[in-house]
Structures are given as C-alpha cells and as structure tokens.
Simulated scan of single mutants.
Amino acid sequence: MSITDYRRSLVTLVLAAASCAAQAAEDKAALVQRVLALWHLEDVAIVMVQRPAADALNQARIALQGRVVAVKQEATLKDIAGDIQKYVDEATPIVRDKAVALKAPTLAPLLAKNFSEDELRQLIALLESPVKKKFESLLPQFERAYGEKVAADSRAAIDPKLQAMTQSVALKLRGATMTP
C-alpha cells in the first residue's frame, strides 16, 4: 500500500467515523425529542399559574365567612370567582405557550448530557407503557377513594380542630375590621 493509498484510507476512515458520530448524535437528539414529546412537564407550569387563583378564592371565602350574611357572601364569592376565572383564562395560555417554547431548549441538553441512548430508549418505553397509561387513568379514582377514606377516618379528630381554627380566624378578622 502506497502512502497515498494509506492517506486515502485514513481520510475515508476519519470521514466514516465522523459520519457515524454525527448519526449517533442525530439518533440521540431524536430520542431526546421523543422523550420531550411524551413528557408533559408544561402541566407543572400550568398548575403553578393556577394555584394562586385557587388560593385567592379560598382566602376570600375564609375572609367573608361569618363577616357577611350568606346571600351577600355567595354573591361576593361569585363576583370574585369571575375575576379569578378571567385571570386563569388569560394567564394559562401565556404560561402554557412559554412552557412549551422553553421545554426543548432547557431540557434537551440536560437529557442528552445525563442519559445514554439506551437509557433514553428505556425512558421512552416507560413513558409509552400501556401499564403507565392505565395507572394514570385510574389515579383520580385511587386518589378519591384514598382521600375519602382518610377524611372519613380522621373527620372526628379533625373537624373540631378545623372548626376552632375557622372560628378563631373569623374572630380575629372581625376584631381587626371593627377596631379603628
């Protein structure tokens, strides 16, 4: 083999290795994109934006309890609920769009760095698993049954404490609003 033939073979080998490396990077990138498509992390951002709305409604309910007559309390809560729903309707799409837009650029490098191709394939298999989907579809039923059982079994001990706390907060709110 001549030096020229040797150089050609070496160049061919280097190009083939580079091609394989590029293909492997493309394969891994495709696996990362598949994981991101299956992973609905944007739901976390949506919960983050909606939680303050639920908290605001609960705080309003507590603040009104015992301070205004039931009819006025109901009307006020209904009016407040309208404002809260407006916030949710306006804020949720903004956060969802931002979360979707930021998902790949933020998480793709982390997935690529921390998982091998084989691990990404395993993760995809887990995320696509029919058993996982079945389990997730049954979660509301499981959570409801569990929550009802915990509530029923702890109601006798918790209700008096909840009532005492509610009365205490109501008295303090009344006192604060009546004092000049």
Rank of each mutant, 00 (worst) to 15 (best):
V69T: 08
V88Y: 00
H40C: 03
P130S: 10
L120H: 05
Q163S: 10
Q23L: 11
Y6H: 04
R8Q: 12
P130L: 05
K132N: 06
E128V: 03
T4F: 15
K103T: 04
L127V: 01
E148M: 08
A21V: 09
T177W: 12
N58S: 12
V100D: 04
I62D: 12
R144C: 02
R144M: 13
P52S: 04
D153K: 13
R155E: 01
D79G: 04
L107G: 01
Q141V: 14
K133R: 13
F135E: 10
V35H: 08
V131D: 10
A112I: 06
K113R: 14
E90K: 11
A156T: 05
T177K: 11
V169S: 05
E26G: 00
A108H: 02
A60D: 09
A145T: 11
L162W: 10
L127D: 05
T12A: 12
Q59V: 06
S19L: 14
P109H: 04
A70N: 10
E148N: 14
Q122L: 08
P140V: 09
Q65P: 00
K132W: 05
V150W: 05
I94F: 02
A37S: 11
C20Q: 06
I84N: 05
D83V: 02
T106M: 14
D55V: 12
G82N: 09
Q59A: 14
M165C: 06
